[in-house]
Amino acid sequence: MPGANARALEKAASIPADALILDLEDAVAPDAKADARERVAAAAASGAYGHREVTIRVNGPGTAWHADDLRAAAAAGPDAVVVPKVESAATVREVERALEAAGAPNHTAVWAMLETPRAMLDARAVAAAGERLSVLVMGTNDLAKELHAEHVPGRAPLLTGLSLALLAARESGKVILDGVFNDVKDLAGFEAECVQGRQLGFDGKTLIHPAQVAPCNEVFAPSEAQIERSRRIIEAFDEATREGRGVVTVDGRMIENLHVEDARRILALAEAVAGR
């Protein structure tokens, strides 16, 4: 949500998203940065957004606004600070030190945006850096620009970078969010990209328009069929364990511990969605 737009910040309280990024970076013109910073800090501290995680995207390291943004965000105490253009573990540590020096509460996490070839190649080190870092966010627009790549269905030019970041996130136990889809009128294309992101392993997707929220929620939430199958897998495995059987099948397929772990993950996600 653009931080300079008071109406957008107000509307955000009614959008059925899991998290909000109140933006001080790309969505705010240079001469509006200071006013937007004050408005966003007040909004993040207001408690007006209910169950939604509230984050503030600051301007990137090396910009004239970065340090002031971090201080304001620390004082506001959002759920997280989203940092663009993160390319190294050192940047994560510098951001964490700045937040701590400014008195950021312990609950304020860091979300690191990976947007460049260097970020993809160093994603493992970035993902393992810092105690506040909890989420990796793909900056696919900037990555495509840096690669001189085209935006095409299926995102073939970006798949190597996306995969490297996913590997880093899963190794380090971090949440990872897919990048944005630019054409807000192409809901079919958007949904197809959501499906691709889910299939690749992303935990969710960053969005740029309220119309994208409902289809995204539907794609990334477990389906009724997945929920029912997960329950049957757990029940069959538990029954086999009680009976001392070493072989378990569900729908004609062999079931192992890894399938049970994934079934438990799906049910936990379904319960979290239902709770929202």
Rank of each mutant, 00 (worst) to 15 (best):
Glu256Trp: 06
Leu158Lys: 07
Val110His: 11
Glu235Pro: 00
Leu22Cys: 03
Asn141Pro: 02
Glu115Tyr: 10
Phe190Glu: 02
Ala27Gly: 07
Pro105Met: 08
Ala73Lys: 04
Asp203Asn: 15
Arg52Pro: 07
Val250Leu: 13
Pro215Ala: 03
Asn257Asp: 13
Arg242Tyr: 01
Arg170Trp: 09
Glu131Leu: 04
Glu38Gly: 04
Ala64Glu: 14
Phe181Thr: 06
Arg229Glu: 14
Glu38Ser: 11
Arg245Ser: 11
Pro153His: 10
Asn59Gln: 07
Gly252Leu: 05
Pro215His: 06
Ala236Leu: 12
Ala123Ser: 15
Val82Gly: 00
Arg155Lys: 14
Ala225Tyr: 00
Ala112Asn: 08
Ala236Asn: 11
Leu133Asn: 04
Ala109Gln: 13
Arg71Ile: 10
Ala112Ile: 11
Gly50Val: 03
Glu243Asp: 10
Asp238Ala: 15
Ala112Pro: 06
Val213Glu: 03
Ser223Ile: 03
Val195Thr: 14
Gly161Ala: 14
Phe237Ile: 04
Pro153Val: 08
Gly3Tyr: 02
Lys85Thr: 00
Val184Thr: 13
Pro78Ile: 04
Val219Thr: 05
Ala44Glu: 08
Gly246Gln: 07
Ala192His: 08
Pro117His: 11
Ala127Lys: 05
Ser163His: 15
Thr206Cys: 04
Val92Asp: 07
Lys11Gly: 01
Asn217Pro: 04
Leu143Thr: 06
Asp186Asn: 11
His66Phe: 12
Leu167Phe: 13
Gly179Asn: 09
Ala270Ser: 14
Leu164Thr: 05
Ala17Thr: 09
Asp31Val: 05
Asn59Lys: 08
Arg155Ala: 13
Ala123Leu: 12
Ala76Phe: 07
His259Asn: 15
Ala45Gly: 03
Asn5Ala: 12
Ala128Gly: 12
Arg57Glu: 06
Lys33Ser: 06
Arg52Phe: 08
Pro215Ile: 00
Lys205Asn: 05
Val195Ser: 07
Glu271Pro: 02
Gly179Arg: 01
Arg264Lys: 15
Asn182Phe: 03
Pro153Cys: 09
Ala44Gly: 08
Asp79Pro: 02
Ile21Thr: 02
Leu187Gly: 00
Val184Glu: 05
Val58Tyr: 00
Ala165Gln: 12
Glu239Gly: 01
Pro16Tyr: 03
Glu96Ala: 08
Asn59Asp: 14
Thr116Pro: 02
Pro210Leu: 02
Ala149Leu: 09
Gln196Val: 08
Ala211Gly: 05
Ala67Tyr: 06
Leu114Phe: 10
His148Pro: 00
Pro222Phe: 03
Pro117Ser: 10
Leu114Pro: 03
